[in-house]
């Protein structure tokens, strides 16, 4: 059934470098509309690189492979074109941009995505609704972009942007990092609420730990190791990881290489 749909994203044998150093060494991954995938892996395995490459960060060079986003060649698009086409990256470390007010930023962001005007009244309404979803106070939008935000506020702000933009693919890059358990719960509930209201949205959760997956249940789990996906499976894989750590997978991988 899935195979008749156009995948939201299809990554084929993707290789990417930083300078001369290869980081991604042949990643294959396909996400269909509405699917939730988790990409796990030890530090340095290339998880964040993949997220940045998919969003079009200028520091990486693609050396091989293809990526199709809703059937379009993603690698030809600039980051803003990718965003307007419906791709969203929740940053692990959202940038602080002094002097830019959250309200104006969010409204202009939505305008860019919609390719037309969004009246202040209309915007206020949808904003209020989404902020309620994420349990955010109204004063929040009067502040400056991520300036003086706590870790939890930054992450919640990322998810607020996701809720407003209604992307076709949301990549959540270590959204759980730096969050205490209460903040993590609120953020995950927010993500689930957005997913529920926008059922065609594909989600790629990038995380080091299993704990986020207690709140958001992925159908597919992939393990990234040294720039390649070495294992894929269902949610039992996360539990296996939780029990045995990355070491076991690393050993399996090395053993396979040695054969």
């Amino acid at each position: 059934m899935q195979t008749q749909m156009t995948p939201t994203i299809e990554i084929r044998n993707l290789h990417a470098n930083v300078g001369d150093k290869p980081i991604l060494k042949g990643v294959n991954l396909t996400v269909y509309p509405g699917e939730i995938h988790a990409l796990m892996g030890p530090n340095g395995s290339g998880k964040s690189t993949l997220s940045h490459v998919l969003m079009g960060h200028p520091n990486y060079t693609i050396t091989r492979g293809e990526v199709f986003f809703k059937g379009q060649n993603l690698l030809e698009m600039s980051p803003d074109e990718r965003a307007r086409a419906g791709m969203f990256l929740a940053f692990q470390y959202p940038m602080v941009i002094p002097g830019v007010k959250v309200f104006q930023f969010l409204r202009n962001m939505l305008k860019a995505r919609k390719g037309g005007d969004v009246s202040v009244k209309e915007f206020r309404q949808v904003l209020q609704e989404k902020m309620k979803l994420l349990n955010m106070r109204e004063e929040f939008v009067k502040r400056y972009l991520n300036e003086g935000f706590s870790g939890g506020e930054k992450k919640r702000h990322e998810i607020l942007q996701m809720a407003l933009l209604q992307p076709d693919l949301a990549i959540l890059d270590e959204t759980d990092s730096g969050l205490d358990i209460d903040a993590l719960k609120t953020v995950c509930e927010g993500i689930n609420a957005v997913a529920a209201s926008h059922s065609a949205m594909g989600i790629l959760i990038i995380t080091h730990y299993q704990r986020m997956l207690n709140y958001i249940e992925p159908q597919f789990i992939h393990i990234l190791f040294e720039g390649q996906i070495v294992k894929s499976g269902g949610k039992e894989l996360a539990l296996e990881l939780e029990a045995h750590g990355y070491e076991q997978i690393e050993n399996e991988f090395r053993a396979a290489l040695a054969v």
């Binding site: 600039s78 803003d80 965003a83 990256l89 959202p94 002097g99 830019v100 972009l145 942007q161």
Partner: peptide, 30 residues
């Protein structure tokens, strides 16, 4: 201009010139 700040704005759908304008205005606004 900080390329990381620019990338962040562009990842939200702002074209490069708009992103740069926002950054410059923010810098003055401060």
């Amino acid at each position: 201009l900080d390329p990381e700040q620019r990338f962040y704005l562009m990842s939200r759908g702002f074209d490069r010139q708009t992103a740069d304008t926002l950054l410059v205005e923010g810098f003055m606004e401060e």
